[in-house]
Simulated assay, not measured.
Amino acid sequence: MKLQGLDAWLHCLLTDGLGPARWLALMQRWGEPEAVLAARQDDLAEILGPALARALMDTDATQPDRQAVHDWLAAGPWRQVLRLDDSDYPSGLLNTPCPPPLLFLLGRRELLQRPMLAVVGSRHASVQGAQTAESWAEALAQAGLTIVSGMAAGIDAAAHTGALRTAASSVAVIGTGIDRIYPARNQALARQLAQTGLILSEFPLGAPPLAQHFPRRNRLIAGLSQGCLVVEASLKSGSLITGRLAAEYGRDVFAVPGSIHSPQAKGCHRLIRDGAKLVDCLDDILQELRLPATPVQSPSPTPASPPADEAESRLLEAMGFDPVDADILCQRAGLTADVLSAMLLRLEMAGRLETLPGGRYQRTA
């Protein structure tokens, strides 16, 4: 029996080794999965090779996994599968080199029709970087942009958190099956995204967080968005892939500069050297995207930090905004090691500075 409708699409997705590029090549020749599966095996082999053509003809092989998708869909009204030929398939993705033929959705499908901005960055975010991502994402969403990110730890999670406070909300593109949450610490965030935002994945149910999945996820983040803001990134950060793909797709790329001494700023500085727009306030982004200005000009800690006393204020002033070690701070502030240690502890507990590797300290605001 030939497969019809969603089952034909699912069989193509679930055929091991097919992949979106080969699938799209088949669609370009035959038009739809049903026609692909009705084609002669020899004709399929011209594109796929004999072994993969035989595997594609074995429709029984994927039956259990197809049934699992139907069971997943039946478990709730916010669970959907979006097909490449659906009228509301995101136009931004449609115009990228390799749009995924199928997307699994959990949450508000209509968010895919809104203007979107990607906000991405380091998984190992500094306190200041996370605050920047959260408060800027909230303000950008208040200006009408749905915030897209990858639901990773660090900058991604902070951006989702800020945007979810607004009506524009947030879209999370994940690198696993939509029935898996990675990292596990983001369970509560994922529940909120499913309720008031949207989670989407191109991977089959149960797909684990394999390293090769995340560059594929990043191309979707870039493709969905009309621009990409990178808040913090090391030179090896996956968010640089997102920024470069966004540039290749003709999107605006923005990067927040940081200290020349911070490894988490070096990736942003490289993007800026490669042509990304340096931004140090929200209006830089809003003006470029031709959106109304917002009164929020710079990130503020959330929740607000308590005011420091006069001595602590002088210490913060002596610290500056670059990482610095305790010995240099003692010299700058004229404090003994014991007094300095107590003050640093109070400031860290108040969220006004953070401890960095190597016994260094940095202001968070």
Rank of each mutant, 00 (worst) to 15 (best):
C12M: 14
S305F: 01
G359T: 02
A152W: 06
L164I: 06
P33W: 09
M349E: 12
G197R: 00
A293R: 15
V279R: 05
T146Q: 03
L93H: 01
L193N: 01
F321R: 09
W23E: 07
I241K: 06
A141K: 05
L235R: 14
P33R: 12
A153R: 13
I155A: 00
L282V: 12
W23V: 03
A125K: 00
V127T: 15
D88L: 13
S234V: 10
L345S: 06
R83G: 00
A167N: 06
P292L: 07
L224D: 05
Q192Y: 00
L24I: 07
I328A: 14
R180A: 07
R332G: 01
S239I: 07
A194R: 10
L344F: 04
G19Q: 04
A25Y: 02
D7N: 15
R363D: 01
V296W: 07
A39M: 09
L335V: 02
M349K: 11
G49W: 09
A247K: 10
S225I: 11
G258P: 06
P77W: 05
Q142G: 11
A255W: 09
D7M: 11
P323R: 09
P97C: 05
A311R: 14
V231F: 06
L103C: 02
G107R: 01
L37S: 00
I285D: 05
A75V: 13
V171K: 02
H269R: 15
G5N: 14
